[in-house]
Every structure is written in C-alpha cells, then in structure tokens.
Amino acid sequence: MEGIFLRIADFAKQLFSSLNFGPEITSILMALFHVSAIIGFVLLNVLVLVLLERKLSGYFQQRPGPNRLGPNGAFQTIADVIKLFGKELIIPKAADKWVFILATIVVFIPAVMLYAVIPFGKKMIAIDLNIGIFYFIAISSTATIAFIMGGWGSNNKYSLLGGMRTVAQMVSYEIPLVFSLLGVIMIAGSLKMSDIIAAQKDVWFIILQPIAFIIFFISSIAELNRAPFDLPEGEQELVAGPYTEYSGMMFALFFLAEYANMVSISAIAVTLFLGGWQGPILPSWMWFVIKLYIMIFLYMWVRWTFPRIRIDHLMHFNWKFLLPLSLVNIVITGIGIKLVNWLNWF
C-alpha cells in the first residue's frame, strides 16, 4: 500500500522511456503526468468537498442536507456540475472582455501551481524545492490579483467594490499568515518541505507552536474568504462581490479555485503543524489525507458556527491583534530556540 502511487509513477516513467523519445521529451511527459495527476486530485477533492460542505452544513444546522439525488444525496455535486456546464456564458457588453475572461484563468492557475510543493506522502512531492514554503506563500499571494481583475473587468461598481474589499482583506491577512509560519521555519531551520516534516519526527509543531497554529488557522480562513471572514462574497447580504457578473463555467472556475485553495492551505497546515505524512501503521499518503480532512472539517465547522463579522472589525482584528501577536510569537520562539541551544551547549 505504501508505495502504490510511487509504483504507478515508476510504471509511467518506464512506459514513456520505452517510447524512445529521448530524455527531454520523457521528462516533459512525466511532468505532464504529474500535472494531470495533481489536477485529478484537485478536481476529485473539489467534488467531494462541495458535497461534504453541503452535508456538513446541513448536519450543523440540524437538517439532512441534500438528500434527493442518489443514496443520501451523494450525486448532488454531479448534478450541480452538469447544471454549471449547461449554463450560458454571459460576458457583459460593457465589460473589459480580456480582463474579465483572464481573471478566471488567473485565479485557477496559482491554485493548481501550489500543489507542486505539497508532500502528499513519503517521497510523494512533485518538486522538493529548498524554498518550498516560500514558493507556496509567493504563489498563493498572486491569486489576489485575479479578484481585482474580475472586479475591474466586470465594469460593475459592486464587483469593483467587492474586488477591492477582497484584496484589502487578503493582503492584510497574508502578513500574520506568513509571520505565523516563521516560528515553525525557525525551529525547523529550513524552508524545504521534507526538512520541515523530518523536524517533526518526535513532536509536532502544533505542540511547540500552538499560538502560531491558531494565528495561521484564523488568517487562513480570511485568506480563503470563508465565513466568518467571507466579506468579499457575503452570500446573504452583499452582491457576490467580484463574482457578480460571472456565470456558468467561469463562475465554476472561481468556485473550483476556492476549494482547491482550501485543500492546499489545509495541506500546508498538515505539513507545517501536524507532522505531515508521518504516522504509524497506515501508509503515509493515507495519514496525509486523514489529517487533511481533519483540517478541512475544522474549516467547515468554523464556517457553519460563527456569524460574519463586520469589515472594520475584521481589519482591526488583523492589524491590532493578530499581527502583534504573531510578532510576539516570533520573538518568544527566537528566545526559546536560543535557550534550548544554550542548555544543549552545557
């Protein structure tokens, strides 16, 4: 069980090299194979997550959730996807056509690129960059531009306002998010994903860095634009923010990117705080998936428990509470590391 995916990859590699195209083309084919595997993983997860979200939201609110299509509503997402495919793609006449269309692609590409550095299991990482976590932060922050593009391209004042609100929120919350990761990186002494996981062999970083984990969790919710920080969308009270003018598959791409981001940020939480793929008995990738879904469950639990907070409270909370707290956490971590080193030296 442990090496099942590695064996599939080896098999693909042998298959491609047996075609005798030369090493360059073989490596390109292998990269394509990896990319398609990752996109498959993303799409599969989104399918499961949409259903899971709707079912869990139902259970949290004492109702059964979707329960008409298939056994206990299991085919609901499939019906939703078919509906979205069938919808007309409407591009408003006054919209900035290219920006409007490009925004959907710009939001989706970083969401997939993030998976390059996620360790799904033992040796199951597409590229083990030595600046892995830095790459993750850099790429995830580029998703912000898509929201302002969508808002601007729609040529609709509500979209633009929604886009600006999204960007303000995401840019602000990125700072405590990154600072909360710094403590972990300081203890691990590396930005490389495999090193960070190896450093958690004995004790998970959630135990050494509980405050950092809480800060990371809160600011990642804001980063994902999920309730209670879903000001950009605000389904019930605001117009859908930058998504207002989007329809059909273009809307679905935004939706897809949102869930893809949720999976990737949960994966980062697992890697940095919950010991990554490490665990006894079960194969490593299974541990990764279990921990991933525990994180996702936490996000959903929070979403369906708390009411939305006001935009000024949101900003105050970030700049006046989370940011100073994350800075203090870094200082304390630094002192702690020095102390431990000093004690070891004696």
């Binding site: 259970y59 949290f60 609110q61 004492q62 109702r63 639990w301 369906w304």
Partner: peptide, 14 residues
C-alpha cells in the same frame, strides 16, 4: 463550536 458539534451528531429536526 460545542453547540454546533452537538448538532452534528444529534438528530436532524427536518
């Protein structure tokens, strides 16, 4: 959070 997790494992009222 305690209340909602209670709902999660409780009976649905629908």
């Amino acid at each position: 959070l305690k209340i909602t997790v209670g709902h999660l494992f409780g009976k649905t009222i629908t």
